[in-house]
């Protein structure tokens, strides 16, 4: 009977434990956000808050988008190492942007309504991602090696195509383009905040309805079909969602999707649950903490404010390797 009592106890405490972890993360994120808005503020508050608020909003949006994209992608790939960035998603987005400048000139980027341009780029991204990755992921039997290989090869092709086009672009236009292609939180495109916010909101609404189905997808193609989940259709839907999220984060600040690998794995390790209803919020909050906290520390402690992406990749890489080695040993 003690065993039974133990089981009962474990099941009782399991849920509050998860809620507690997610709650604490939310508090931490809120505290860091407040600190980011207020610490060291001089001069007129309305000006400071508006300036920092824009930056904060961009970081929250990017954090949520990157983390959600990584977790969703890992679910359909059934693997915790592949992420949209390893599979070349953000390289694809960069190629689409370069292609736009190449074909239309820098006006192609700045011309007309930026919201319209964003919608067109995201749409192109969705179509190409479905064509390029749909067959790979919907099969459900592909090996990790094949997926990695395809990701690395596609990523390399996109990058070299982009740099090839970059060479042929007018230098003045190339400068404009370059600002787009490197992650930079100080050059947030505030004109895109509203449309990207709406896009992320819409994606999250869809994800909320998908939560139990995402859990089923973790079991793989055949178990999912056996349980009545249309595997192919749902994998395609997830690719569409991931494409939108990658477009959002890359359009706002440039490629930072490496962060996704880090926060997704941290969330898996932190939470004793495989369920997306727990993992997704935890990963998103961790991403916000990492981005806002990192930017805060860099700006206030080191007075360096342009190097956040570099620091995140560096620190994140080390943390990730440490985590992998540790779980490997356990």
């Amino acid at each position: 009977m003690p065993a039974l009592a133990n089981v009962a106890l474990m099941r009782l405490t399991a849920r509050p434990g998860l809620a507690l972890i997610v709650g604490l993360l939310a508090l931490l994120a809120a505290a860091i956000a407040t600190a980011f808005l207020t610490i060291g503020a001089r001069g007129r508050w309305d000006f400071v808050l508006a300036f920092r608020g824009t930056k904060l909003a961009a970081m929250v949006l990017v954090g949520v988008a990157v983390a959600t994209a990584a977790v969703l992608f890992q679910t359909i790939a059934r693997n915790r190492i592949l992420t949209p960035s390893i599979m070349g998603f953000d390289a694809l987005y960069g190629l689409i942007q370069t292609g736009t400048v190449f074909l239309l000139g820098a006006r192609g980027l700045g011309f007309g309504d930026p919201r319209l341009a964003f919608a067109v780029e995201a749409g192109t991204m969705i179509v190409f991602a479905l064509l390029l990755y749909g067959w790979l992921l919907a099969d459900g039997r592909r090996s990790l090696h094949l997926m990695l290989l395809v990701g690395v090869v596609l990523g390399a092709i996109f990058r070299s195509l982009a740099s090839f086009m970059g060479r042929m672009i007018d230098p003045a236009e190339f400068v404009v383009l370059q600002q787009r292609l490197f992650a930079n939180f100080n050059a947030v495109r505030s004109d895109l905040l509203l449309p990207t916010c709406l896009a992320v909101g819409a994606v999250l609404l869809v994800v909320a309805r998908l939560l139990p189905r995402l859990d089923v997808l973790l079991l793989g193609r055949e178990a999912a079909i056996g349980l009545g989940v249309d595997h192919r259709r749902n994998v395609f839907l997830v690719i569409v969602l991931v494409s939108i999220l990658v477009s959002v984060s890359t359009a706002l600040v440039g490629p930072v999707t490496f962060l996704g690998l880090l926060v997704a794995n941290l969330a898996y390790m932190l939470l004793p649950s495989y369920r997306h209803v727990h993992v997704l919020p935890a990963a998103a909050l961790l991403a916000v903490v990492a981005l806002v906290g990192g930017q805060l520390a860099l700006e206030r402690l080191f007075a360096l404010d342009a190097v956040l992406p570099v620091v995140i990749e560096f620190v994140g890489g080390i943390v990730l390797i440490a985590l992998l080695v540790r779980t490997g040993r356990r």
Binding site: R78, L218, L219, G220, E222, A223, G226, Y268, Y274
Partner: peptide, 11 residues
């Protein structure tokens, strides 16, 4: 349906 080899990688 029970498959001959049911591999689940999820934890």
């Amino acid at each position: 349906i029970l498959r001959q080899d049911s591999a689940v990688t999820a934890r």
